[in-house]
């Protein structure tokens, strides 16, 4: 049972972080389908930070550096979306899809090159971080990690920024009616950049949380198994509102965790359900949930539409 709680919280943290990222981007008016790729690159940044951390670094410093590295990597990578979608008015879905493919491919190529450069016989795309990972845990031997605390802080921060600051309200104005926002002197391009970059940072952070969940090495060929997309579903289910997103993430996290730990429950293990069903569960649940919640969707009105100053 404790195991289920641990994994639920871990996956819920990932989903909350990434969905909040998507939330910032969409409130500014840019659809970020590329979260999956951003997660991979963020995970790569964090994993590299852990790998090259000199042994004996104090644990709080490791946590800080890994967090920063992941967020920064994700942010840099999200620039690809920002430039294409904001400056060049590219199709955001297409660019996002390309970023997902590119993220996994680039990370694989990079890690393999790094591994082979150190040892010619090593052609794997795996990074190990067994020792360093311990610094991220609150209680050794469990999966309770400091990222959960960070997630709560980010969640509160996101709520405050979006609803209680001038920046947040302006950001949301750009996603609802950019022409109106522009007419009162808000720089729509800059706001959209801010939205996408914040989503990059949060997506990257989500990536590192994901690859440290329950494992201490990651094969980058695997990507993040559709988690970026699950996060988008969480965001839609959460109606683009931070607190709702957190609740939705808990629900989805629970179903995702079940597929990891169901064999530990005698009741579930004895049922004649193939393991594939548990793997499918989070996706089936999200599809059903979306079927019943999309009708009264409160999506930002101008999302996905490139801002054109000439259109008033």
């Amino acid at each position: 049972m404790l195991l289920l709680v641990q994994y639920t919280l871990v996956f819920a943290s990932v989903l909350t972080l990434v969905a909040l990222g998507g939330c910032f981007s969409e409130h500014s008016g840019v659809i970020n389908i590329g979260l999956e790729g951003i997660m991979v690159i963020g995970a790569l940044g964090g994993a590299l930070a852990m790998k090259f951390m000199p042994p004996g670094t104090p644990a709080p410093l490791i946590l800080l550096l890994v967090t920063l590295a992941a967020a920064l990597a994700g942010m840099l990578y999200s620039l690809l979306l920002a430039v294409a979608a904001i400056n060049f008015k590219a199709d955001q879905t297409l660019v996002g899809t390309a970023m997902n493919l590119l993220g996994t491919a680039a990370a694989t190529v990079f890690v393999k090159a790094m591994n082979t450069a150190r040892d010619v016989s090593n052609v794997s795309a795996t990074i190990e971080y067994i020792e360093q990972k311990k610094a991220l845990l609150i209680v050794d031997g469990t999966e309770f990690n400091w990222f959960m605390v960070i997630t709560v802080i980010v969640l509160i921060g996101a709520y405050v920024v979006l609803y209680k600051t001038r920046f947040g309200l302006r950001l949301m104005a750009c996603g609802e009616h950019p022409q109106a926002a522009d007419s009162v002197g808000i720089n729509v391009y800059r706001m959209r950049y801010a939205g996408v970059l914040i989503s990059g940072a949060l997506g990257g952070l989500g990536g590192i949380v994901y690859i440290t969940a329950g494992v201490s090495a990651w094969r980058f060929e695997y990507g993040v198994a559709g988690f970026g997309f699950l996060a988008l579903a969480v965001m839609i289910f959460g109606q683009w509102k931070p607190l709702h997103i957190a609740l939705a993430a808990l629900l989805f996290g629970l179903f995702r965790a079940l597929s990891n730990v169901y064999s530990g429950f005698d009741v579930l293990a004895s049922l004649p359900i193939p393991s594939a069903v548990y793997n499918m569960l989070p996706y089936i649940v999200s599809l059903i949930v979306l079927t019943f919640t999309s009708q009264k969707s409160r999506a930002p009105k101008a999302e996905g539409i490139p801002y054109d100053k000439g259109l008033r």
Partner: peptide, 20 residues
């Protein structure tokens, strides 16, 4: 011994990105 076969995935995903 030098490169990963995924370099082609890398190139084709770059091409998709550029298609934007």
């Amino acid at each position: 011994t030098m490169y990963a076969a995924q370099i082609s995935d890398f190139i084709s995903s770059l091409i998709i990105y550029l298609c934007g």
